[in-house]
Nucleic acid binder design. Structure first.
Lengths: 258, 258
DNA sequence: ACGCATTTGTTCGTATGTATT
DNA sequence: TAATACATACGAACAAATGCG
């Protein structure tokens, strides 16, 4: 694991966070990349305990401190979870107490609490140009389209349209959606081996159309929050496009800036 | 700097990020707290170079590695900025290239770019119950109320209402607002010694009222994004309440989840 | 242009503390 | 109690970036 230095003359701000193949990485980042591959390839599965720092150090032939830096970064990115005295675990959406890592909607008064789900539709169809572009597919490729409503104490609050690559979610049916208990991303993870690790959201205010008005029980034209989410798995591969319409008359989308 | 251990039996998930006075802190966190106080009291001012790790280690009588951990956390919280070869600096809103750390609005096509400002109003008045509660003032206390519009290539996009504690912003006038070049938080920092370090936002979709429709050039009732922001300075003290109405017909609020 | 000093970044090693089983 | 794992703390050395003479 030598620390080679090639990288001739990258412009200071050139690296676009994507690949520029810097040809050089600090040792701990090389270790991090190796561990990332292990996660990606399923060598270590969600919820599992990974080897101890000492074992990892021996395996990669580096000091424990170097492994520690790699693990720290992976933990900071929510890919691993460290527990003093127990070990380091692969993060999972399944048993995770933090159900609301991705859902930022909150009642104006009081805390977040689980909402009731109702699946309206789950069909296989061909990707529109827009959906294909987002998911890096070709127009007309197979996709799964899911519609659902989330309700808070009986009142519908969220109306979601979800598009998934058909190739990855072959056996997804309304049946399986209805049967599964726990967060949707938990099902994707355990049932399809697709783990969401990051997402970008674009938020807008829109007027309710007929469909939204019906499912959310609001007037036609009522202002709704439109949340377009593109979710990624390892390697920045997009694996879910979702558009949620939120009724924010008694809820709000919460965000922390720092 | 002894490492005392009292802390009897805090429930595992009890610490509400606020104060529980754990009565115990690792050494590096004690150092961090001391440095935080230095920042808060103005011993190290925004933009300034702070002492080197070696100096800090000597000053606090700890190892360089311990100082390093403290500095790393402060840098992760955007209070300090580390520059290899140069030193560690106090973060500032002034010269900062990251003008958009707090403004998440982005044109649907293309990158963020500075918007044109127009100040509509700057008046001193008494805090309403709602404003007082947010800013931890008493109803009727003096506050400064600012209204402004941000425009993108000539078109108004953001209509902001801003409330500030009158006691902190004594000499804030429309004149000073208009004269200042650079981000508003830069003026607050250099002109009033108030540095914003964190903010919470509550986002909703609302219908444009007459005032918003006028200033943003949209129809009455048009859907707008309402962004309520409460900004904090050191010690989680709220120092700004802001409500922005965003026209999201060609812009969107961008958020990254991870 | 070159080298030197300074500062942060990386890597190793060792020892000890704290949490869990 | 003992063993294991992560957390903290110290020390040392070298690398990389910067700025100055």
């Amino acid at each position: 694991m030598p620390t080679a230095r090639f990288d001739p003359a990258l412009p200071p701000e050139a690296a676009p966070a994507a690949e520029a193949t810097p040809a050089f990485l600090p040792l701990y980042r090389q270790i991090k990349a190796l561990m990332l591959r292990g996660l990606q390839e399923g060598a270590w599965r969600p919820g599992e305990l990974i080897p101890s720092e000492k074992d990892l150090a021996a395996r990669y032939r580096v000091s424990q401190g170097t492994v520690r830096k790699a693990v720290e970064e992976l933990a900071a990115e929510n890919l691993l979870v460290r527990r003093q005295g127990k070990g380091t675990f692969v993060a999972t959406h399944a048993e995770e107490r933090v159900q609301f890592r991705f859902l930022r909607l909150q009642p104006d008064d009081g805390q977040q609490e689980p909402m009731q789900r109702r699946f309206i539709d789950c069909e296989r169809l061909r990707a529109s140009a827009e959906v294909a572009r987002a998911l890096l597919l070709a127009t007309g490729d197979a996709v799964v389209h899911v519609q659902r409503v989330l309700s808070f104490r009986g009142s519908p609050v969220v109306f979601d349209d979800i598009w998934l690559p058909g190739a990855l979610f072959k056996d997804l049916t309304a049946q399986r959606l209805g049967d599964y208990r726990g967060p949707l991303y938990g099902l994707f993870e355990s049932g399809f081996g697709v783990r969401m690790i990051r997402a970008d959201e674009r938020i807008r205010a829109v007027a309710a159309d007929a469909s939204a008005a019906l499912h959310l029980g609001v007037d036609l034209g009522a202002p709704l929050l439109s949340v377009e989410r593109l979710s990624f798995t390892y390697g920045d591969v997009p694996v879910e496009l979702r558009r949620g319409l939120y009724d924010t008359s008694s809820h709000h989308y919460r965000n922390q800036l720092s």
